[in-house]
């Protein structure tokens, strides 16, 4: 990997996020460099998805304090589409259905915009033939039927199909930084293995990846350089891959005991 890329990072500093006036994140710090794989774990409701939404720029997730920097630039005020065009991607825990819009049309549009960040609305899209060829190749790799491209975005997709479609988007958009929010949930055993391999392959050594997961399967081919634990809206602990293994086998009791303050915040949010 070229040296310059290594210095490119997604840097989150003291991030506080509120949803509809309710504080959820209370000062998250996290830096992901390109080429690194990070695992983010934490109990249900601890704020993992919230962090993803805030980074991707969901208007409902209000940053009340702190910064999100992309390759040195603060992006707090950027629109979601600008973030996407500059290399941020989030695979949704629960993808949205867009009835009537074909996967292929949506993807061609998204891919064009992301590859040509300065594209003005109305300028040509990637030529159809070229796009189809590329799409077909990527779908074959993911063992997806071409029929999928003609279906409406996430409309009537099974849980597993939705997650595969998210990985397909990752493969087409090739972001600098990807947050994969429980991309393993809903997948059967074979599909998880395939997803794990595919993500490793897509990510290569140029993508910074944050994998949010409750399981260990996705991490099989994506060995985390760092594992973070989120509790009560804070990252309370960061270590190597052994932390992921520990949490996976033993749960969060130890973490809660070690960080009583965060554990209390967790209860605060829940009530």
């Amino acid at each position: 990997m070229i040296d310059v890329m290594k210095h490119e990072s997604l840097k989150i500093t003291n991030l506080h996020v509120a949803v509809e006036g309710k504080p959820i994140l209370h000062g998250v710090n996290l830096e992901i460099r390109r080429g690194e794989t990070h695992a983010l774990m934490g109990p249900n409701g601890s704020g993992k998805s919230t962090l993803g939404f805030a980074v991707a720029g969901h208007p409902k997730y209000e940053v009340t304090e702190g910064t999100i920097e992309l390759c040195g630039e603060t992006i707090n005020d950027w629109s979601p589409d600008k973030r996407a065009r500059q290399g941020v991607f989030m695979a949704f825990q629960r993808p949205m259905a867009i009835p009537g819009v074909k996967m292929a049309d949506f993807l061609r549009h998204a891919t064009t915009n992301v590859r040509r960040p300065d594209r003005k609305e109305g300028e040509d899209l990637i030529p159809m033939r070229e796009f189809r060829k590329e799409l077909r190749g990527k779908m074959e790799q993911l063992k997806m039927d071409m029929e999928f491209a003609r279906r409406y975005v996430n409309d009537g997709f099974s849980g597993g199909e939705m997650k595969r479609a998210e990985i397909l988007q990752l493969a087409m958009l090739m972001p600098k930084f990807a947050i994969l929010d429980e991309t393993d949930s809903g997948l059967d055993a074979d599909a998880v293995r395939l997803a794990s391999e595919s993500i490793a392959q897509i990510g290569g050594d140029e993508m910074g990846i944050l994998i949010i997961t409750h399981h260990d399967k996705l991490l099989e081919h994506n060995t985390p350089d760092y594992t973070h634990v989120m509790l009560g809206g804070r990252i309370v602990e960061t270590a190597g891959k052994e932390l992921a293994e520990e949490l996976h086998s033993q749960g969060y009791d130890r973490v809660r005991a070690d960080y009583p303050e965060a554990a209390e915040a967790e209860l605060g949010v829940r009530s």
Partner: peptide, 23 residues
């Protein structure tokens, strides 16, 4: 948000949703 987070501008996204609606 889903569409804009994939790089579509807001007008593009709402046009896409409307087109899908009448498809």
């Amino acid at each position: 948000f889903y569409l804009t987070s994939r790089g579509l501008t807001e007008p593009e996204a709402s046009t896409m949703i409307v087109n899908g609606f009448i498809e």
